[in-house]
Design a protein around this nucleic acid. Structure first.
Lengths: 240, 240
DNA sequence: CAGTGGTCTAGACCACGTG
DNA sequence: ACGTGGTCTAGACCACTGC
């Protein structure tokens, strides 16, 4: 009773899908050199141009990095990425703002309704909450809490000390690649806790950023809420 | 004394640059059908594949729209674009928020230092300021002022009544196409004027959005400052 | 030097929209 | 039926990297 629908997708789309699956499944690991265009073309019985188009789509989606003369490598978070990618804070001169972390604290608990909704969890699911302060110019500019499904990140507690660069741990320890984020921004007044941590008066206007991070198969794996008191720094969004 | 540097750029880049110039200069106008791939290939003495790659880059930059079976058309703001493109407000259900305008007011004056910096103007330059309130669900959620260089938009005052869809006027009346925007977001407390217009208390946290709009040759043509009191609406930014 | 990605060609055929 | 963009091939050559 199979529908027996012919797969009419273009060849390069099929090849692309097959290559994505190799990265998603971990058959091709972060940082690994993948076969060259001719080898992939031969394997899928297509021309080099078609294989090239499939690989190009991987590169456009940041799943691989191509280097002329060297080869094509599965994307891997680099020290620069870890600090800058997905971070949209800039100072007045237009330079990216870099943060260091402080007072990191990892706790576990039952997911709230909001957390279940953001991460697509069912009732009773347990989550990990990773709270920290983010510092620039010796001032606490941001306080944030990242929420993760416990079932997705077992034994994360053992790594609590090294949890500086979260997405790097996701990739290297759990094989989970964050490919895109959505951030929802609003303005709120500081509550008592935020005011204390940021060193401002209660009610001070803060930028509230609610981020959802998605994996390669587009499922939410992290829900992060930040409250920001930005002195000389702003959030930058580009639209085309 | 010409440097006589050989132009080593790939063919498709040269063709692409030539086509961009035709759109920038107005030789090809908004909404116009452009020649097909083979005609462009013949004109530049390249193969169809190379012409195709050049046109593809135009499409990727939103300068043209391609329709299989119909042809390739120079990009033109559509009713939907006018309302939604470059607008990043969404409601809780994930739907785009649409606004209507009210109390629009156009004034002229000498550019302030901040306005000169944002628009790249020299001292003494004159600007037009277009202020308005933006309404959703019968509530004023946003007040904003758009600043334009007077020399770029002569006689804009005559159009004050029809200034609802600003970028559409830029394109249709002045041949200026907005291709991208940058928005800087911070949180501020409502001042007396904002509080009055938005119907909130002084000091209420507002989202402040400072937008610079760029043309096809990447020069700033509009500087817009908005103050937003977002009830049930948020600003959405996507990062890859 | 060999090996890789990047460009380019000439030609074929397919898929879609319109008359 | 025709004209358009979209896919695909087979092969050539160029540009860059690293040994």
């Amino acid at each position: 009773m199979s529908p027996r629908k012919a797969d009419t997708r273009p060849l390069y789309v099929k090849v692309h899908a097959a290559l994505v699956e190799r990265i998603r499944s971990g058959q091709w690991k972060a940082g690994q050199l993948i076969p060259n265009e001719f080898e992939i073309a031969a394997e899928f019985k297509v021309s080099q141009g078609t294989a090239r188009k499939a690989i190009g789509a991987l590169a456009a989606a940041n799943l691989v990095v191509r280097h002329q003369g060297r080869g094509t490598y599965v994307y891997e978070h680099t020290p620069d990425d870890i600090v800058f990618r997905f971070i949209n804070f800039f100072d007045a001169s237009g330079a990216r703002a870099a943060f260091t972390n402080r007072n990191a604290k990892l706790t576990a608990g039952k997911a709230t309704a909001a957390e279940r909704h953001a991460l697509g969890l069912s009732k009773g699911a347990r989550v990990l909450r990773f709270a920290r302060q983010r510092i620039a110019n010796r001032k606490v500019l941001v306080i944030e809490t990242a929420v993760l499904a416990k079932v997705v990140f077992p034994n994360l507690g053992d790594l609590a000390d090294t949890l500086d660069t979260l997405y790097d741990v996701f990739q290297k320890t759990y094989g989970i690649l964050v490919t895109r984020t959505e951030e929802r921004l609003t303005a709120v007044g500081a509550d008592a806790r935020a005011a204390a941590e940021l060193g401002v008066a209660v009610g001070t206007p803060l930028l509230r950023i609610e981020r959802t991070a998605f994996t390669i198969d587009d499922r939410p794996v992290e829900w992060r809420v930040s409250h920001c008191h930005l002195k000389g720094v702003h959030y930058l969004a580009r639209t085309r």
